[in-house]
């Protein structure tokens, strides 16, 4: 009996010692589909690794790296100067790794006759200068704007890329994630919003051409599409241990194929 207990204790100790938990927090764009899929594939090959993934916005991912509450911070935007500064003050060195490229697609209801916009019109719509679809060639009707919430990297990226850093229209409705935006725009014939490429195939929506260009692999990589952007993993310095292995997997052929399958543009 005594011998059995010792063996059991040794097994528990061994399993505890080898079990690895990878905490990943941040971007909904990355964390809603891509990273969970990558994690599942990774777990299939590394059974001793478990994941805790929280996709609550890029700001939370960068904050988690600064606070040391995650090994990997997902972000669809670059860290701000103030965030890098705050990290430095805590002895944290922000290290970005591009994991995939993305294009912020402008989506409208599938029944909306408007299928193309200019960058200027996009800016005016989201800033509230244009409030009726008739001003951009559509049927008369008040435009309903759906944006991400303020902790979202896409929220701030879109302001930088599409709105000359102007503020969103006060009438805009802030959604928690990409899927909520596609859902609302899909239900609302007067709706307009923006989502990452991984969400453009959701039901009830269509992607608007911007200056005649659709976001796809070619236009995103060449940056011909005006709202193209990289997406990141942030780590504290060069990644180590299981985090380094997971990032390596993400950037591997297999990882990048998963990224492309989900809708992102491969870094390769």
């Amino acid at each position: 009996m005594k011998k059995s207990l010792l063996i059991f204790a040794a097994l528990v100790a061994a399993s505890t010692a080898s079990a690895q938990k990878l905490v990943i927090k941040g971007s909904d764009t990355l964390g809603a589909k891509l990273v969970p899929t990558l994690a599942e594939e990774y777990k299939a090959k590394h059974s001793n690794v478990s994941f805790e993934i929280a996709a609550e916005g890029s700001t939370t991912g960068i904050a988690a790296i600064i606070d040391g509450t995650a090994q990997i911070g997902m972000s669809s935007r670059r860290a701000k100067t103030t965030e890098v500064s705050a990290a430095q003050a805590k002895g944290v060195s922000m290290k970005p790794t591009i994991v995939a490229h993305d294009g912020i697609a402008i989506i409208v209801n599938a029944n909306n006759p408007v299928g193309a916009l200019t960058p200027r019109q996009v800016e005016q719509i989201f800033a509230g200068d244009i409030t009726d679809w008739s001003a951009v060639g559509g049927a008369a009707g008040k435009i309903s704007i759906y944006t991400r919430n303020t902790s979202s990297g896409t929220y701030s990226d879109f302001k930088d890329l599409a709105m000359k850093k102007r503020d969103y229209a006060s009438s805009s409705q802030k959604m928690a994630g990409n899927e909520q935006i596609t859902s609302e725009v899909g239900k609302n014939p007067s709706g307009i919003g923006y989502v990452g490429l991984a969400y453009v195939h959701d039901a009830g929506i269509k992607v608007a051409l911007i200056d005649g260009i659709l976001p796809n692999k070619e236009t995103v990589l060449s940056k011909k599409y005006p709202y193209a952007r990289p997406t990141f993993y942030y780590t504290n310095g060069e990644p180590t241990g299981e985090a380094a292995k997971f990032i390596e997997f993400t950037l591997s052929d297999e990882g990048q194929k998963i990224a492309e399958k989900i809708g992102f543009v491969s870094v390769r």
């Binding site: 100067t81 430095q88 790794t97």
Partner: peptide, 18 residues
């Protein structure tokens, strides 16, 4: 390349912040 550019950006921002 894109990754080198991101490393460069962060290095410049760190220098700016510090």
């Amino acid at each position: 390349n894109d990754q080198e550019a991101e490393d460069l950006r962060v290095a410049l921002v760190k220098d700016f912040a510090a």
